[in-house]
């Protein structure tokens, strides 16, 4: 595997970026840049569309054509870009609230159409940009500024949602595994059809602080802890004993979880 220097893919004049210290979104962004390079995408032909939120701010630093759209609507903007100019590679950066709450409709329909987009959904379980409100992905019981006594709603399983909606490539990965991210992004970008990658990221500033999960380094380890390949063995070995161990969160399956070949929507007769 070639080592990719991502600095040429950055708008260096715009750096440093606006994200908080320790926010893992940048790790994801970096892996994405590596993947565009590995996938052999001409940067002039790469378009990244973003919604609104912390993750979406990231696109401003990527030296592609970047479209920082409106809250939740990035899949719609991306649909327009891709349909109007099919030879472009189009990706979407979206947050969990952006993609699954306000933008849920756009996401499921883009998936249903199987339009050739790569959607990266940054899941940090919270609304970061607006100050730490509960998100559709916040786990039950977690503290947010609008769930001061703990979230009473269940969280979205975006992977199940996307498979159900018809996405032809569905993956989940964690910001704590950058190499896997690079690989999955490369596969997603080269997949013909709608590719969805949920990335477990973190928000040390709000989610970490509210839930006492620590700063960037601790939260990266916490992300790893969500992986079912870790969480399930740990839960299995739980022993009944005299000391109270905090309940472990249920594990999430990571990796490429769904892949199929389906007709790709192009909006054209030649499609």
């Amino acid at each position: 595997m070639t080592i990719v220097d991502i600095r040429p893919h950055l708008r260096e004049w715009a750096m440093p970026h606006v994200l908080c210290a320790g926010c893992a979104h940048g790790i994801v962004g970096r892996a994405f840049l590596v993947a565009t390079d590995r996938a052999g995408i001409d940067p002039d032909r790469m378009v990244v569309v973003a919604g609104i939120g912390c993750s979406s701010r990231l696109v401003g630093y990527l030296d592609f054509c970047t479209l920082h759209a409106t809250h939740g609507r990035a899949p719609a903007f991306a649909t327009g870009v891709k349909l109007a100019r099919p030879e472009l590679t189009v990706a979407v950066f979206s947050g969990d609230g952006d993609g699954l709450a306000i933008g849920g409709n756009h996401l499921i329909h883009a998936a249903r159409r199987n339009i050739d987009l790569t959607v990266v959904l940054f899941n940090n379980e919270i609304y970061g940009m607006t100050g730490g409100q509960v998100a559709p992905t916040t786990q039950r019981g977690a503290i947010a500024s609008t769930t001061p006594r703990g979230n009473t709603e269940p969280a979205f399983d975006s992977v199940a949602l996307m498979i159900g909606a018809g996405a032809s490539f569905v993956a989940r990965a964690s910001a704590s595994e950058p190499f896997t991210l690079e690989r999955i992004f490369t596969e997603a970008l080269t997949h013909r059809g709608f590719a969805f990658v949920e990335v477990l990221s973190d928000c040390p500033t709000y989610f970490g602080r509210y839930n006492r999960l620590g700063d960037g380094p601790e939260m990266l380890a916490w992300l790893t802890r969500q992986d079912s390949r870790v969480a399930e063995p740990l839960a299995a070995k739980r022993v009944v004993d005299h000391l109270p161990i905090p309940e472990a969160p249920p594990g999430l399956d990571l990796g490429v979880l769904h892949r199929e070949e389906r007709p790709v929507f192009t909006g054209r007769r030649s499609g």
Binding site: A69, G80, L83, G267
Partner: peptide, 29 residues
């Protein structure tokens, strides 16, 4: 539109419709 090599897409709502239009516009259409 397809006869003119253009694209028609029925979106999921009006919000996304104009979103797609703006996206297409930046793509030169």
């Amino acid at each position: 539109l397809p006869e003119e090599d253009g694209v028609f897409v029925q979106m999921e709502d009006e919000i996304s419709s104009l979103g797609a239009v703006i996206g297409a516009s930046f793509a030169g259409a």
